[in-house]
Nucleic acid binder design. Structure first.
Lengths: 214, 214
DNA sequence: AAATTAATGTTACACTTTTCACAATAAAGA
DNA sequence: TCTTTATTGTGAAAAGTGTAACATTAATTT
């Protein structure tokens, strides 16, 4: 079977680099080019492609255009993927403002919050609704995926609500491990932990402060 | 040696759960409790602890207070870690507003942007400086870690600037693989890719839309 | 005090992912 | 056309990570 996780992530990185290369006018790419650009070994690049049935030319490398088409097919970029945001706080806001999703056939179609003062919020590209309206909206608009940017303390409850409404994938920004049925997909993004982990590794590495002082 | 990456991340999750348990008045915890809360197997919990030299009691489990102290020691929570944010756009803003770092001995002490209109920005808890001021600031305040929330197209240049200034760890929100010397630590957070990956897996899983229609 | 029990701590196994080595092959050159 | 060459494609080895089994031990019970 295909579907690992790592491959998928790398595929997205490849796509990024490939787009840039295409813009620069390149037509073909070698595994070691793409590897260098994406921080992946050439063997890994070839293996990933091979795994997804992508063929190159024995001496001419891979055709960038074909690669991009195939990658888009893998990610089903023929249909627009509709996503909602739940929790219009700092991060929720930032995500709503972000313009980069559209080009990858993803559209944030609505947002939800408990706080009524948010409902009138202008300057947002999508409406903010009450949480009550969520279940109906999800069903009617056939939403599968939600970005959840709510306070930690309500994260589990909101997740339950989302799943009950029929959501299949949740991107969770709260530093909580959500308890969900096995068929639900969760991606946890915990900026705080990432930062602490980074600091930890930087400290490990050696001279904390500059120079050898202190 | 200790220092894997996965362990560290799990340790942070443990800490989260342990704090909650402590607030609820618990004094000890068993590996399977903590495992259940954090989505980790009990064996893994024990192994992680063992790896960091944390000892439990043969029948009474682990002492929550000791655990927390040890974990804090591992992460060097005796000293405040100062961090800067570079790029005060949507996400940069959100991160600057976020209040949760303080409790883990992390403080965002300043932010930087090229856009002069940002410098006067009130409602931010830290000042926004010109990028010119960055090198001196980093040296004077002994900053090791930066959160980089700049547009993709300038990400590499800003990273170079940061490293030149003496930054050892960068949290990068642009979907680019930064080319950096080996002693520099990078954490990439690419919300777009995470979202696409999530959608991919959700689609794989089965009935895209609700019911069996279409 | 001895036996039982319920947990930890650790060693061995299994699985996953990456790297390595090299076979296969199409293009380029002689 | 034959040889060389530069690249892909892949099977095997290695490294990394998680799981399972079990040995160990301190508290509890008898």
């Amino acid at each position: 079977m295909i579907s690992a996780n790592r491959n998928i992530r790398r595929l997205l990185r490849y796509r990024n680099s490939l787009c840039k290369m295409q813009e620069l006018g390149f037509e073909t790419v070698y595994s070691y080019n793409l590897g260098r650009e994406t921080g992946v070994s050439p063997e890994q690049v070839r293996k990933d492609f091979s795994q997804f049935g992508i063929k190159g030319n024995k001496k001419g490398g891979y055709n960038i255009n074909e690669l991009l088409i195939t990658i888009r097919e893998i990610f089903r970029k023929d249909e627009l993927q509709k996503v909602i945001v739940v929790g219009v706080g700092n991060i929720g806001n930032a995500i709503l403002q972000y313009k980069g999703f559209q080009k990858n056939m993803i559209e944030i179609v609505a947002s939800f919050d408990i706080d009524p003062t948010k409902y009138k919020k202008k300057k947002l590209p999508v409406p903010v609704y009450s949480l009550d309206k969520l279940p109906k909206f999800v069903v009617e608009h056939k939403i599968n995926t939600a970005i959840m940017t709510v306070p930690e303390r309500v994260a589990q409850d909101v997740a339950d609500l989302l799943i009950e409404a029929g959501i299949k994938g949740i991107m969770n920004f709260a530093p909580t491990v959500l308890k969900v049925p096995p068929h639900i997909h969760i991606v946890n993004i915990c900026i705080g932990h990432e930062l602490e982990s980074l600091i930890y590794h930087s400290l490990q590495m050696g001279n904390n402060g500059r120079g050898k002082g202190s």
